[in-house]
Design a protein around this nucleic acid. Structure first.
Length: 113
DNA sequence: CTCGTGACTTACG
DNA sequence: ACGTAAGCCACGA
C-alpha cells in the first residue's frame, strides 16, 4: 500500500520525503538505520534534510522514524510524543539494546536495502 | 529568488 | 569525551 493513500486531504509530502519514507519502511524492527545511510540509500547527501523529513513524518508509526539514529550510534532526537524518552522505549521494546543514549551499530544497523 | 531553520555530519581543539 | 564551527540540503515564508 502506498503511503500517499493514507493521507487525508490536509497532509502533503514532497517527493524527497516520500523517497525517504519508502526506504525507511524497509527497516525491520529490531534494527536501526542512520540518517546518513538513509540519505545514501536515497542517492543523496542531504543528511540534514533527512532529519527534517523525519521531524515532519505524518505516517508514524507506519513509517518507523524511531529507528533512525545518528551515524555515531547516538539516539539523536525525536519530536513525537514523549520525545527521546519514548523513542528509546520503543526501540527497547523491539529488542534493540540502548545504553547511555547509545546503540551498538555493529549489532543493530540494518544493511540490506 | 533570497533567507532562516533544523530529529545531521565531519573536523578540530 | 565535549563543544564549536563549517558544510550540507530540503522546505517554507
Amino acid at each position: 500500500m502506498l503511503l500517499v493513500e493514507l493521507m487525508n486531504g490536509k497532509t502533503t509530502v514532497t517527493n524527497f520525503q516520500n523517497k525517504i519514507y519508502e526506504l525507511l519502511k524497509k527497516v525491520p524492527k529490531g534494527k536501526v538505520i542512520t540518517y546518513k545511510e538513509l540519505a545514501k540509500a536515497a542517492k543523496t547527501k542531504a543528511y540534514r534534510a533527512v532529519g527534517t523529513a523525519m521531524a515532519r513524518n505524518p505516517f508514524a508509526p507506519r513509517v518507523p522514524c524511531h529507528r533512525v539514529v545518528n551515524s555515531d550510534g547516538k539516539i539523536g532526537n525525536y519530536s513525537g510524543k514523549g520525545r527521546v524518552k519514548t523513542k528509546i522505549k520503543m526501540l527497547r521494546k523491539e529488542g534493540v539494546e540502548v545504553k547511555n543514549n547509545r546503540i551498538d551499530l555493529k549489532k543493530y544497523l540494518f544493511r540490506n536495502f
